[in-house]
């Protein structure tokens, strides 16, 4: 629809609309980061001006006096482990479903897909009792299992689609070459769907990293809190110290924003993967 190489009133209006929308989106984030470099009185007195000097005291407070670094670490551990476990088990299931004909194959794939429809949050009570029984309350491992299970149906769905599109002859060729089924999977087929692994990984990683609900219920000890959950504690501690609070929010969001901007194409493809067949 490239009808826009010359300036028309129409195009001008579109640009004005989009530019104002972009300002509405960016300004709050910009202000959040900017305020992190201000002292609290400065934020209250002159909220719109640039900071008098970019002082990093607020960030120092967070780094030295709060648990936020610990929360960060926990979130990284949980997200990375969940995604690793998720991609391994998800690939296994998707590979079996997409590359082999066996009795009950349809049932098995429906079994995995039906998980897409089940909002796990609503089963939080039995899940709580079950984790208690398994000794997984107040433990990162419990979260890792929940996140893996929660994301598994979508991952299997995405990966099955990609794996199914690989030609059968590749597999046969490797079989003739004497490769075992495991080697066919690891040497030939899985490397060919690595873009899909990235997409499926991002699709699940962002909600897992951002999740607040499950830690809220399952994690109590400060040392196991994740970032999203830990922020609520942190907000309780520094309730009106706006400088520190803004710095905390910036610190919590900037790494994600940075990774997103660098990898925006993959992120957008990944996060909309469930909505776009």
């Amino acid at each position: 629809m490239k009808a826009t190489n010359f300036i028309t009133i129409e195009n001008l209006l579109i640009q004005i609309f989009l530019a104002s929308a972009a300002i509405v989106m960016l300004y709050p984030i910009f202000m959040m980061v900017l305020s992190g470099f201000k002292t609290t009185p400065e934020i209250f007195m002159s909220p719109f001006s640039m900071p008098k000097k970019f002082n990093i005291e607020n960030f120092q407070v967070i780094w030295e006096k709060t648990n936020v670094p610990r929360y960060f670490l926990n979130s990284i551990i949980v997200t990375v482990s969940s995604i690793a476990l998720l991609l391994i088990t998800g690939t296994m299931a998707a590979y079996a479903i997409s590359r082999y004909k066996f009795r009950g194959a349809l049932m098995v794939s429906l079994f995995f897909l039906s998980g897409l429809m089940l909002p796990l949050r609503l089963a939080i009570i039995p899940l709580f009792i079950q984790l208690k029984y398994l000794g997984l309350i107040d433990s990162l491992l419990g979260l890792i299992f929940i996140y893996t299970a929660m994301s598994l149906p979508a991952t299997v769905f995405i990966l099955t689609g990609f794996l199914r599109s690989l030609p059968k002859e590749l597999e046969d060729s490797a079989r003739m070459d004497g490769a075992s089924e495991l080697r066919i999977m690891l040497d030939i087929m899985v490397p060919l769907v690595s873009p899909a692994l990235v997409i499926a990984g991002i699709y699940s990683a962002v909600p897992i990293w951002n999740d607040f609900f499950f830690p809220l219920i399952f994690i109590q000890s400060p040392e196991w809190k994740t970032l999203a959950q830990g922020l609520t504690t942190f907000f309780g501690e520094y309730s009106i110290n706006y400088g520190v609070l803004y710095a905390g929010l910036s610190l919590a969001s900037l790494p994600m924003i940075f990774i997103f901007i660098v990898q925006s194409r993959r992120f957008i493809a990944g996060m909309t993967a469930g909505a776009l067949k």
Partner: peptide, 28 residues
Amino acid sequence: PAKRGLAMVFQSYALYPHMTVYQNMSYA
């Protein structure tokens, strides 16, 4: 298949796309 001592050339060639010619030929 591999134990029968036969080799097969496929219609679509079925070359491993992520491997070089050398790796393709040496894989077996």
